[in-house]
Amino acid sequence: MMKKIIIYTLLILSSLIITFPVLYAVSASFMTSAEINRGALLPSSLSFENYVAAFNNVPLLHFLFNSFVVSFTVMIGQLILCSLAAFAIVFIPFKGRNFVFFLFISTMLIPWEATIIPNYVTIQNLGWVNTYPGLTVPFFAIAFGIFLLRQHFLTIPKELYESAQIDGCTRFKFYYKFVLPLSKPMLSALGIFGFLTTWNMYLWPLLVTNNNDVRTVQIGLKMMVSAETGTSWNVVMAGTVMVLLPTLLLLILGLNQLKRGLTAGALKG
């Protein structure tokens, strides 16, 4: 009994501290400027004025749309490229496949930030500045995804492949009729992970967008911060809530799948 009280106290105290910044942001997004200046913790009334202002002051809806397109494209790209690569490594017996796997894993040692200068030049030469391909294509293949899917594909019995081949099933048909459906949990873990990380990306979109055409919502938020912090923090907080809502919801809904994927990555890594 005593133990239970201690645990609940710790749980509640910790969650108050962890959630405070976000709860405060939500609360501040409904406040008037006067309330913010006064240092109030809760708004006196629920008015969506600040949200309207946020959508009017910067093209927030357009930025949200861009972020969605970019994150969705990277997610699909990663699922296709990583699963194809992992399929080849597991199911096609050719010399050097272990070397290829090692090559992919070794990319984990290259910090993306160390490569941004030549990558920026490449994107410029391709004419991809301010385009969706510039924001998405470089992230289509990630070592984590190939690793995760390879580990899972290894658990699919080889006999299944053999018997499918005898039934006249081609290699590619086996890939999309058997391997992909059998890997749904891992694919969704990778998908959620890819969507989240892309949505939250900051440095790269800052570099390769210099107008509003394909600018993502993270950079839109930074624009808002530099434009409005002097005066209207409540509007900035409304914008912030709009930016974090989609991924927060996705995380909460997909938490169990994501956890399975990340745990598999951690234990076998």
Binding site: I80, L81, C82, L84, A85, F87, A88, I89, I92, F94, K95, G96, R97, V100, L103, F104, T107, I110, W112, A114, T115, I116, I117, P118, N119, V121, T122, V137, P138, F140, A141, I146, R171
Partner: peptide
């Protein structure tokens, strides 16, 4: 070998162009 490389090609291309090449170039 041919099939394997075909399946690996897209991923190898991305990793080559946007990770290995720029690392060397850096």
């Amino acid at each position: 070998l041919g099939a394997g490389l075909l399946y690996l090609l897209p991923a190898l291309l991305i990793v080559g162009v946007f990770l290995f090449y720029p690392m060397m170039k850096t």
